[in-house]
Design a protein around this nucleic acid. Structure first.
Lengths: 149, 149
DNA sequence: CCAAAATAGTTGTATGTTCAACTAATGGAG
DNA sequence: CTCCATTAGTTGAACATACAACTATTTTGG
């Protein structure tokens, strides 16, 4: 589709970021689906930190995923419904719920790693390393610009 | 919050794009709200092209906004509910609906321009022009990489 | 020690996105 | 000219996000 190619440089940043974001999430789901996996990009982005931080609280996930606590609650609900994780109340602090991967969760996580790699390659195809570095730095800067003090 | 600053360079592109996208839409709504305006970033991103292409069809909006036709349907529904636009069936092609700004829509569009500018400034603060150019080029490249052929 | 503030998480509502399936109108090939 | 493919748009379900208001714990400060 040449639509985009011809419009590219008239588009403002907001539209570009928004489109790139949507297309990336879509492509990840498509790639996962083709491999017989049922997982969204956001579920993946939460599942990773759940595995990395053993017994993470939702607060920790919220910080490490840069997602709202509300989003975490709802994504964890979805993951729980799919039997990928379980919620366990912390013994010391009853407010805290710790999220633990089930066997199925660990399995899916492993299966999804090549999907993520494939998607990453597709996303970054033909973009030079230095440009990707600048790109990531700009994104980081934007995020810190927009953080509410 | 140093969370982000310290994590920045461990974060992958997906997480960065996703967070930047979410924070930008959030900030725009906040800025609009502070100015007494009730409009989301996505509504803005559709309202602009509605004004630019006089009597645009939803198909045209879909292409120019890089949004799915379903999204356009639903955003136009919202705009119509707010009396910012009206839908008019095309006389020649009965399938086509043309979207027209109401007076209130034109007014809101004008009022929102400074909000958009303010948000853009906040987003890009402290980022050099050349880096922004590279940033936009990378986004464009990602979008064309991900377009389904 | 106790009241008030802070923290962790949930819920409901509104918005936006995708997909698949659908209606309705148009256009083209035989 | 008629059937079939295409095109424009809608609908409903599933998912994600933000916000505000809420519950329930824990901490802190007087």
């Amino acid at each position: 589709m040449e639509k985009v190619k011809s419009l590219n440089f008239n588009l403002n940043m907001g539209k570009l970021i928004s489109s790139a974001h949507n297309m990336m999430t879509k492509r990840f789901v498509q790639n996962a689906h083709e491999a017989g996996l049922d997982i969204s990009l956001d579920q993946w982005m939460v599942l990773g930190p759940i595995s990395y931080h053993k017994n993470a609280s939702q607060k920790v996930l919220s910080d490490s995923c840069l997602k709202d606590k509300t989003s975490i609650t709802k994504i964890v609900n979805t993951l729980e419904k799919k039997n990928l994780v379980v919620r366990v109340s912390d013994q010391l602090d009853q407010r805290v719920k710790r999220i633990i991967l089930t066997t199925a969760g660990k399995q899916l996580l492993n299966d999804a790693i090549p999907i993520m790699n494939k998607t990453r390659e597709e996303v970054a195809k033909g973009i030079s390393e230095p440009d990707i570095e600048i790109f990531k730095n700009v994104l980081s800067k934007i995020i810190s610009n927009l953080e509410n003090e």
